[in-house]
């Protein structure tokens, strides 16, 4: 009797499952499509965020564009490839066939396959004998020391190799870094902005990879009194640092000395400590 009841229940459950799968199938709404697609696009100016989850202007623009295209009736793959044409393959968050993609799918699949495989293989070999060992044979001291030495040596090798090679690399990077000016300084005729706001212009130049030009602009201004002098000194120090000018440390130290309460002082201090 009980068995019959359970059987009926099982059949009912199966029936429910079938109904569940069949019923309520409808195409996603436009809003849902926009949300789904936004979740598949990477926000290009963020660190690991989707377009759906980001507040940056670029992400907002991308969401607006997705909305427009969904309303225009384009398909998901059309919209995604539209973005890929403009931002590159990496704008779509699902790894594709090229490059990293296959590896990212293969590794978990492989892990699962290995796990299942080991289980089945061990079953076939048969169970081990169910006894417990309680041996007391400790590792001979020499071997223990050897293991420790090997571990410490391989561990220590990592930072050593990095510090040796990286300083070499850093020097190369500095000389190869395209100081975009390549000697061709600012525009040949000083723009109105440079005349009225040299420190601001210098700051912009610094941000755009032209430290030499920035340094040239503020060279004489660092000794001026007031806010101009303060900012000029800061920009000069940063520009010198970016251009690998050895005078940078002293300039930055002077900034911290003379203006310890400036909002940027804490960061400059940290910069000096880490270099």
């Amino acid at each position: 009797m009980r068995r019959a009841a359970l059987l009926v229940l099982a059949l009912l459950a199966a029936g429910l499952l079938v109904v569940t799968v069949m019923v309520g199938h409808r195409a996603p709404t436009d809003t849902e499509r926009v949300q789904h697609l936004s979740g598949e696009l990477r926000c290009p100016t963020c660190v690991s965020q989707t377009v759906a989850g980001s507040d940056t202007p670029v992400a907002e623009g991308m969401r607006a564009e997705v909305t427009r295209q969904v309303a225009a009736g384009r398909s998901d793959s059309q919209i995604l490839s539209w973005f890929k044409q403009r931002y590159g393959e990496s704008i779509v968050l699902l790894p594709t066939r090229h490059g990293l993609g296959p590896l990212l799918w293969a590794v978990p699949g492989g892990a699962l396959a290995i796990g299942v495989g080991v289980i089945l293989w061990r079953r076939r070999r048969g169970a081990g004998w169910r006894q417990e060992t309680a041996t007391e044979h400790a590792l001979p001291n020499a071997w223990l020391a050897a293991v420790l030495a090997l571990a410490v040596a391989s561990g220590a090798a990592v930072p050593v190799v990095f510090s040796l090679r990286h300083h070499g690399g850093a020097a190369d990077a500095a000389s190869a870094a395209p100081t975009a000016a390549t000697g061709a300084v600012t525009s040949s005729s000083p723009s109105p902005a440079a005349a009225t706001d040299p420190v601001g212009t210098a700051f912009d130049l610094l941000k755009n990879g032209q430290p030499a030009a920035a340094e040239a602009l503020v060279q004489g201004l660092a000794d001026r009194p007031g806010k101009t002098g303060t900012l000029a000194l800061l920009v000069l120090g940063l520009a010198q640092r970016a251009a690998q000018d050895p005078a940078a440390t002293e300039t930055l130290r002077r900034f911290v000395r003379e203006h310890p309460n400036h909002p940027a002082a804490a960061q400059v201090r940290r910069l000096l400590r880490n270099s």
Partner: peptide, 20 residues
């Protein structure tokens, strides 16, 4: 990985590499 990663100098070019 050590040898490759430590020796690599990163290109900081402001030139664009637009897919367009």
């Amino acid at each position: 990985v050590l040898v490759r990663a430590s020796g690599e100098s990163v290109d900081q070019s402001p030139h664009g590499a637009s897919p367009l």
